[in-house]
Design a protein around this nucleic acid. Structure first.
Lengths: 202, 202
DNA sequence: GTCTATATGCTGATAGAC
DNA sequence: GTCTATCAGCATATAGAC
């Protein structure tokens, strides 16, 4: 489609995504991006109207179909417990393997712009969150499904989000980065709780 | 100590902390800060050598003794279950009442600078994390104390961190912002799990 | 589609008067 | 301790040649 020496939009976005994920919108200049891509700043403006447009395109690029696998797992016709296991495993792998994806979402949440959050919700969450809610309803009738859904996501996301700090906290081990180890821990924590209908505390 | 019309360092930091928390280091200019404080940009440089120094001072100011209450609760001589309840309640209240505090920590983790993370660890985490580890060892001999400690923190932090997105997700309710509601949910999730030594899953 | 050249404004920071 | 005035550099963005 494109001459060998010219850069396609996709190529530019592949290079742009990590930059914005690491340093944020204000932490990366059009010069920085052009430099990494290997073209001059002015050439960037041929592909993208302005910096905001480029950022938005990078977000979409990074988000595209990343959570499809989660919906797929949640729609499988297996027992709720098995579905939870599969979901947590898939989610841990997703978060572990796509640090840029998670960082960009974090940054969008930090900015807190309503319109942009709605985009995140449509692009990332909408697809699977309702299915996760249903799973939580099936799993634990005595827990609030919404709070439980958020908790499941939080157990996984926070673990990886805090990784650089976690690694210097007392008692840290290298295997704690392994998505399978994390998934096993999270499922244990959840299943022994959500499967028990009675309360053990006063 | 200071004449009525001049600004003390503390006054400046009180105003600076929310700005950096909301927009990040690169999202706030010395002009912005000076404007909010009500002085000229050059006057800021009388109090702080440069922008980095001001940022670091703001961080310290925002972090100072915020987690003391957590150590206090964790050092109380009550049953592990009661200590967990008190800790989660105190932690929920801390995170809920101090959004700037949490946002600044998040930003520090996102930047990921080793030296700065060590400062966060010393200023914020060191004090109570070892006590939390001990509590987890007492509570659940069959769970990894480190993973469990991180999970407890994550259940609370993530819930509030994702708040702007959570509020537009399906099934959200206003009471989910209430720290007491969140604490009750988190403790239920944990205690029914960590108090049960046997596994319910294959 | 990329380039050179340039416009315009904002940035962190300094000098020196009051 | 605050001010006015100013600087050099970098930011986004545009115009127009090739």
């Amino acid at each position: 489609m494109q001459p060998r020496h010219s850069k396609s939009k996709t190529e530019i976005l592949d290079i742009t995504v990590p930059l914005f994920a690491e340093a944020g919108f204000n932490g990366v200049s059009m010069r920085d991006i052009a430099g990494e891509v290997g073209i001059k700043t002015a050439s960037l403006y041929h592909h993208f109207r302005d910096k905001r447009t480029l950022y938005r395109a990078a977000i979409f690029h990074a988000f595209s179909r990343k959570t499809e696998v989660l919906s797929l797992v949640l729609a499988t016709d297996i027992s709720p417990e098995q579905r939870l296991k599969k979901f947590v495993a898939a989610f841990c792998k997703l978060v572990h393997d796509n640090p840029y994806f998670i960082r960009l979402i974090q940054r969008e949440i930090l900015v807190g712009d309503d319109l942009r959050l709605r985009l995140v919700e449509e692009q990332v969450a909408q697809e699977f969150f309702s299915l996760l809610l249903s799973l939580c309803r099936e799993l634990a009738s005595d827990h609030d499904p919404h709070l439980l859904s958020i908790s499941i996501l939080g157990l996984v996301v926070f673990h990886y989000q805090i990784t650089p700090l976690r690694q210097i906290l007392p008692g840290s081990r290298s295997q704690y980065d392994d998505p399978e180890v994390v998934a096993e821990h999270v499922v244990r924590l959840l299943l022994k709780s959500v499967s028990e209908p009675f309360s053990l505390t006063s």
